[in-house]
Design a protein around this nucleic acid. Structure first.
Lengths: 353, 353
DNA sequence: CTGTTAGCGCCTTCAG
DNA sequence: CTGAAGGCGCTAACAG
């Protein structure tokens, strides 16, 4: 087929380093009988070159098995065609949906996503932002609105669009697609009180870097104060431990030890709540008669339990797609009218409360 | 503090393009009173320069707020310090653990991970490999061992180490960290038959691109044939639909419609099995007396159900860490003795079967 | 619609 | 241990 010899016309300079001698755009250009510039244009916008020039280039690409080098492209154009995404953990399926939404929108537009996870460790967000900055992403997506001062400064200094999410603030770094965890928990408390529950407890794993959990707790406390002024709210939290169903069972036991009269347990997450709800049968606890249970997130399991788990549903995937749309518009040079977007939440009342 | 004017000594050539006028290594070099070479060396290996030269450079980096440009580094060194990872879906927490393991090992070594998901669509793997190749990753990690011919060719042509995983083959593209889905399902069948079950059914969502599901089905069929020669195994599958617990309930109903005498249902995944198991109570089915149920994956929920779900446990996180170690050794120029690694599986017998 | 020129920011090679 | 020269592969700017 193609004469392999033709592919390597580059001068055998003594300073050459690339041991791989990979196919470059120059090889394609030569094979197609055009300049590299024309190849470059053809690849980026096929309509910008003549139809048979295009055909020859496409054929040359196939023959030479050319694969564009984005690093060179990035360096020359100052656009990396990447977006950096920072999430607390990949293992939480709920953030995974957000990331799927993000990439589902960005990938077709030619952007690739770098993913980093902090495992809720406060310092790791800053070091991730720092190391991601070296790749010069064209945009940042971050879960959370609370960062170290230095992180915020780093993000602003990059000069690229930034979307924060899954939380709420009046002073976002740049753009925001989120909701109020505080308001969500208040609605949970309102619901419980409306149903006649009076001795509410809040429980969960509260990792130091998990500001969303803190906002939920604050929402619980504030609503509790509104309904029961002066009454100290029952709060049982641990600062470490895996976010698994078994931990929910442990927390339920802790709550009942420390506050035996509790008639409703508000969990910080569906994972914990589901574990507790499943364990209730074995512990002789009737839900919701003896005890009401609520969760957060509307995980898959919430609707499958008996009774169903009353919880807060978040448009997780939509947070990702909306964020991607905002980033896209800005990365493509446009501007956005609304830099903050509230996706809200929904209280799903099921049998457990 | 620092004289901002000093930072921009680059010639104001009419052809200049970088509108950002970002801080470069040359700025750092000037601020520190050394050459860019020395800065470059200091950043890559701090011990390769003199102690007070190093101190001056570190101070200059801080002052100038320099952030290294990896694209330039990549282009010059021909190493991108990235690894491309391709998984079926992020939303399955079980693959997420593998990715966490992978990044937990690679990140401290300076490698960043590009993540792509195929959503079990056959063609998307090839296009992902193709587009990822443009970033010139220093290694590939892929879930699965079945690819299109072109995908395999592309992977081999990159010349970088490749790890396939979560499956088994005798002819890996390069390296392999996996286990036999086929053998795992055979052990499930053996167990069921040993417990006296005789009318086994296999069910699950079988997306066209999900070869691991196919291997599991094949394992079921082969074991079934060994135990019940000539008897057609009960197989009820759907080729689309979400991998959620509710789907498991639907499949359970389908199985009982099509094969009312079934006494054991083997699910392709814990997600489906859990949904079914939870629904059994409401359907008046006693598990494991009337019906045995098994899953695959040992998800968090498996051990929380009553009865517990009998399933296959996979060292999901370890697949990630082991793969990362293999890649690292090869990316750092070393060689590995065992290019294939069987992490095995474990049959966890709980109450459901 | 296509070509020429120069430079993106860093690192390898070679020299001191 | 440090510096000088030049190229990695591509694209912006300008010209035709």
């Amino acid at each position: 087929m193609s004469d392999e010899g033709q592919l390597s016309l580059r001068k055998a300079d003594s300073r050459r380093r690339s041991a791989t001698r990979a196919v470059t755009m120059a090889d394609v250009a030569q094979a197609a009988g055009v300049s590299t510039q024309t190849v470059s244009r053809a690849l980026r916008d096929p309509r910008s070159v003549g139809p048979d020039t295009l055909a020859r280039i496409e054929e040359a690409v196939r023959e030479t098995r050319y694969v564009q080098n984005f690093a060179a492209s990035h360096l020359a154009s100052n656009r990396s065609m990447t977006v950096a995404a920072i999430i607390p953990t990949i293992s939480a399926s709920i953030f995974a949906e957000t990331i799927q939404g993000l990439t589902d929108v960005l990938l077709p537009e030619g952007y690739q996503v770098f993913l980093g996870h902090t495992d809720y460790m406060a310092g790791r967000e800053e070091s991730l932002v720092r190391s991601f900055s070296g790749r010069r992403p064209d945009g940042f997506f971050i879960i959370g609105t609370r960062h170290t001062q230095e992180t915020t400064a780093l993000l602003k200094r990059t000069g690229v669009p930034v979307v924060e999410s899954w939380s709420w603030t009046n002073r976002p770094v740049d753009m925001l697609v989120g909701f109020s965890n505080h308001a969500a928990l208040m609605s949970v408390v309102d619901h419980l009180v409306g149903r006649g529950y009076r001795r509410l407890a809040f429980t969960g794993v509260m990792k130091p870097g998990d500001h969303r959990a803190k906002e939920r707790l604050k929402g619980f406390q504030d609503a509790h104060e509104r309904h029961f002024p002066g009454v100290t709210p029952r709060v049982v939290t641990v600062t470490s431990g895996p976010m698994v169903m078994a931990t929910g069972v442990e927390l339920l036991k802790l709550v009942r030890e420390q506050h035996p009269d509790t008639d409703a347990v508000v969990f910080v997450s569906d994972v914990l709540a589901s574990g507790a709800l499943l364990a209730c049968a074995g512990m002789g606890i009737s839900v919701p008669k003896d005890l009401a249970i609520t969760g957060f997130g509307n995980y898959d399991i919430a609707g499958q339990l008996t009774p169903g788990l009353t919880t807060i549903a978040i448009a997780s995937r939509r947070i990702g797609t909306e964020s991607a749309n905002l980033l896209l518009r800005r990365m493509q040079g446009g501007d956005v009218e609304n830099r903050t977007q509230d996706v809200g939440f929904e209280l799903l009342v099921r049998g457990s409360a």
